[in-house]
Amino acid sequence: MPPTVSRWTGKEARALRDAKRVSQVEFAAELGVSERMIVRWEKGNVIPRPINQQGLDTILSACSPDVQARFAEMIGLTSPATSAQDPGVSSEQLASPQSEPDVPVGDEDQVRHPVDGKLMTLVPAGVYFAGENNEPVYLPAFYIDVFPTTNADYARFVAATDYKPPQHWENGDIPEGLENHPVVFVTWHDAHAYAQWSAKTLPSAQQWEKAARGTRGEIYPWGNQRTPPKVNCREGGKRTTTPVDCYASGVSPYGVYDMCGNTWDWCSTETEPGRHELKGSAFTSPFLRCAPSTFNDAAADMLDDDTGFRCATPAETMRALRNVRGQSAT
């Protein structure tokens, strides 16, 4: 077990940042608070709120054994027997959990995936506040598609694999004018097949939600304001899908489109055998259902005119793919 802190103060927060060897800006981004808040903690003026206490706990538990050992040494705790040295800290012997990189992979936040060519954006490693109760959750770094999978994207997959096209494509052709609309009438199995072909995965529900909400626990991608015109939902009266780049004012903190409205996205998270989570709401949904924390799921063989998907990939996998492609081109 990693060292545990019964009550975080500025001293322990500073020690954790120093142990991770990151700046105040990087530490604030990972924790989902402002840089000013980190400065106030470290000056000793503010005790972190309970929700940030939880976030610090989560970051510490996700650190590599080396970082945990440095942290323990910095706060004067080098073994279980010395835990009494600091009344704010208790410890059990350090374990060796599988660690993940805590820093972004690569120099660019947005890249083109080398297989399907879709634009993807980096969601850095760190804590975000998940669900309706804003529970702190740590996720490793990953990339996610900026736009949902479009009909044009899916057509390339169909052509490359001879996969069955969606049922509403007459004679296997995209309906006229819908090339840049999200593909629909796809089951979870169809979405998974595309993800495998493109050397990606479907995002987990937690990855999807972090990409939609950012790290600060805001209700919608753009903040906490109830603004139905920012999304393609039932109140907008469109009654069908819209181009995936249509709602620029509703993008997430990472620049991801259509995380509310237009179409539900399939996720990899299985809720029970044969059922998977759906995220994001759709043009058929009332705005009350548009919050990214909203739960929905469906049978894996369900398909409808308001359900599509986008893909994700771990940051390490993206780096490896780009390296392989770069070597092949030389």
Rank of each mutant, 00 (worst) to 15 (best):
L119S: 13
T215P: 11
Q207A: 09
V256E: 02
P50M: 01
V183L: 04
R275D: 00
E12P: 10
P114N: 09
E270L: 08
P253L: 00
A298N: 14
V256F: 04
S281D: 10
Y257V: 00
R70G: 01
A95L: 07
E170H: 14
Y194G: 06
V39H: 14
G10K: 11
S252E: 05
V251D: 02
A329H: 14
S91H: 07
L16W: 11
N296D: 07
A95D: 12
C233Y: 11
L202E: 02
A69I: 00
Q206S: 14
E42M: 09
G126C: 09
F185S: 05
V123N: 06
Q327L: 12
V39Q: 14
P314Y: 09
A81S: 13
T294Q: 12
G76E: 04
P97V: 00
V111S: 06
K230S: 03
A141W: 08
P273Q: 07
V127C: 10
C267W: 08
P253T: 03
P3G: 01
P273L: 01
R216G: 01
F27K: 03
G223P: 11
Y254A: 01
V89Q: 05
A160K: 10
G126I: 07
T242I: 04
E100M: 11
V324M: 13
S91D: 00
V231M: 08
G255N: 07
P228C: 06
F283V: 05
I59Q: 08
F185H: 15
D153L: 08
E26Y: 12
I38V: 15
T241R: 06
A199P: 02
R36L: 01
A199K: 13
V46D: 03
F283R: 05
A28I: 03
P203C: 05
V89L: 03
T215I: 00
R21K: 10
G255P: 10
Q110I: 11
D173M: 12
E235D: 07
C267K: 07
R36G: 12
K230V: 01
T58W: 08
Y254D: 02
P148Q: 08
R7K: 15
T161M: 04
Q24G: 15
N224H: 13
R112M: 06
E35K: 15
S249L: 12
K118W: 11
A84E: 04
P148C: 06
E270F: 13
E132A: 15
M259P: 04
R21T: 02
S64H: 11
W8K: 05
S91N: 02
A84K: 13
G172S: 05
N296W: 08
P104F: 01
F27I: 00
C260A: 10
S328G: 06
W208F: 14
E135P: 03
R14P: 08
A62S: 14
R70E: 07
G88I: 04
E132P: 14
R239G: 02
S252C: 04
P80I: 01
S249T: 13
A248M: 03
D301F: 14
Y138F: 15
G106C: 04
W197T: 01
C260H: 06
P243T: 10
M120G: 07
Y194T: 02
E12M: 05
I75C: 04
W41I: 00
Q167R: 15
F287S: 03
L178H: 12
S328E: 12
R70K: 12
V158Q: 04
V22Q: 09
E132D: 14
N323D: 10
P243F: 09
G214S: 09
F27T: 02
Y154W: 12
Q327V: 09
A152G: 11
W208L: 01
